[in-house]
Simulated assay, not measured.
Amino acid sequence: MSAPEEVLAELGLSVPEVVPPVAAYIPSLRTGNYIFTSGQLPMKDGALLSTGKLGGEVSPEEGVAAAQQCALNALAAVKAEIGDLSLVKRVVKVTCFVASTPDFTAQPGIANGASELLGKVFGDAGRHTRSAVGVSVLPLDAPVEVEIIVEI
């Protein structure tokens, strides 16, 4: 299998710079053989891809793209911690928070934006456990927030 960043390049993507924290936390933390990321917002080039809620101002397509960007930002946090994404043995867990209206129930489909990207990048090692949770609001009015746990 190709190196993770080669796969991203084939997809027309790349690992961005680590998004600076918006509050009192660090982007990632290594403990033993695991890296835990803080929740990552869909920031690209210093701005949110979209704002608002799924089922409201944000379309499902925009939500999926936001989840993918969150996953890229989580990979940036992992890479900053270990230097090389090829050291990732497996993606263990993905938690996706989806800001949504009370009647929106397609959170798992939105979370697929992150999950499918991680599967493409890491192959079988990208298969993971996951939670997709609907919430009333996220920081900065982001539509999606994603955190991951990887084993190295």
Score class of each variant (00 low, 15 high):
Leu54Thr: 08
Pro42Asp: 11
Val58His: 04
Ile26Val: 15
Lys79Met: 01
Lys120Asn: 09
Thr31Ile: 15
Ala66Val: 07
Ala106Met: 12
Ala67Leu: 06
Pro108Ile: 12
Thr95Arg: 07
Gly83Ile: 13
Arg127Trp: 02
Lys89Tyr: 00
Gly32Ser: 14
Ile82Trp: 00
Gly55Leu: 00
Gly46Met: 10
Val19Leu: 03
Asp45Met: 03
Val98Trp: 01
Thr129Leu: 06
Gly109Ala: 11
Ala71Pro: 10
Lys120His: 06
Gly12Phe: 04
Ser131Glu: 14
Ser50Gly: 05
Leu72Met: 05
Ala23Glu: 08
Leu117Ser: 06
Cys96Thr: 15
Asn112Ser: 03
Lys53Cys: 14
Val135Glu: 15
Phe122Met: 08
Lys89Val: 02
Ile82Phe: 00
Ala80Arg: 01
Thr105Arg: 06
Ser86Trp: 04
Gly12Val: 10
Asp103Tyr: 08
Thr129Asn: 11
Val88Ser: 08
Ala9Phe: 02
Asn112Met: 12
Val19Gln: 10
Gln68Ala: 04
Gly123Gln: 09
Lys53Gln: 15
Val94Ser: 13
Tyr34Met: 13
Lys44Glu: 11
Thr101Leu: 05
Leu85Asp: 08
Glu17Cys: 00
Asn33Val: 01
Gly113Arg: 01
Pro102Ile: 08
Ala74Pro: 03
Ile35Asp: 08
Phe97Gly: 09
Thr31Lys: 13
Val98Lys: 01
Ala65Glu: 15
Glu116Ala: 13
Leu8Phe: 09
Cys70His: 02
Asp124Tyr: 01
Ala80Phe: 00
Ala106Pro: 00
Ser100Glu: 15
Val94Thr: 14
Lys44Ser: 13
Ala132His: 02
Phe104His: 10
Ser28Ala: 15
Lys93Cys: 04
Thr129Lys: 04
Ala125Leu: 02
Asn33His: 12
Ala132Thr: 10
Glu10His: 14
Thr105Glu: 11
Glu57Ser: 12
Tyr25Leu: 14
Ser38Phe: 04
Val135Ala: 14
Ala125Lys: 13
Pro42Val: 13
Ala71Ile: 11
Asp124Trp: 01
Val94Gln: 09
Leu48Asp: 07
Leu85Lys: 06
Glu81Gly: 01
Lys79Asp: 10
Pro108Ala: 12
Phe122Ile: 03
Ala80Gln: 09
Ala125Cys: 05
